[in-house]
Design a protein around this nucleic acid. Structure first.
Length: 180
DNA sequence: CAATAGATCATCT
DNA sequence: GATGATCTATTGC
């Protein structure tokens, strides 16, 4: 709950890497489980939500609207639910491959500026559900030079329950943040 | 630019 | 059988 918010902020500025594709995480949302009605884990363990209740640092990937996948990072200790949705990424490398996976994107800014777009650009699928993001083919790691970040906060996007909680975090002014 | 319709299926009730 | 942590294309000012 509290730790998930910390992780959501800490993930900003980190690098997501999958094959030749890499980029800076510029937008996240915290989903804190009990008490957060928008969170998938709010109503307990199901076959789908079991990875959110598992150890931190693992990927929770799910299908939304029958055609897009969303990537979360599990954020709480084993047994405690909580996850961080990765909402937007600033592409760094593998941009040509991202463009071939996302023919609809006309600008580089549109390659990964949304939760469904970035999984498509990076080739992330439900096969990655449960994957350890500290080792393996899909990883998150610190940038080479850590700098001060200007982090802005807002309500989360696209939800109907608990829609007023300020649990969305993004890099202020960054052009790769989603439009909502 | 803003609003909206339609696509499409795993998951849960 | 209903419901989405979405995106794109298209329409209308």
């Amino acid at each position: 709950m509290h730790g998930t918010i910390h992780v959501a902020r800490a993930l900003l500025g980190k690098i997501l890497l999958h094959g030749s594709a890499s980029g800076i995480i510029v937008e996240t949302e915290a989903y804190t489980g009990p008490g957060d009605d928008a969170s998938h884990s709010a109503r307990g363990v199901t076959p789908r939500t079991r990875v959110i209740f598992g150890p931190p640092g693992h990927a929770y990937v799910y299908l939304i609207y029958g055609m897009y996948q969303c990537l979360n990072i599990v954020a709480e200790p084993d047994g405690v639910p909580g996850g961080v949705l990765i909402r937007a990424i600033q592409p760094l490398t593998g941009i040509e491959q991202m463009q071939s996976r996302r023919r609809a994107a006309r600008r580089v800014e549109d390659l990964a500026n949304g939760p469904g777009k970035l999984t498509q650009a990076f080739g992330i699928t439900m096969q990655h559900n449960g994957a350890d993001v500290t080792r393996g083919t899909l990883t998150v790691h610190p940038p080479k030079n850590e700098t001060q970040l200007d982090i802005a906060v807002s309500p989360r996007i696209g939800i109907t329950k608990a829609a007023d909680l300020p649990l969305r975090f993004f890099l202020r002014g960054n052009p790769f943040v989603s439009r909502g």
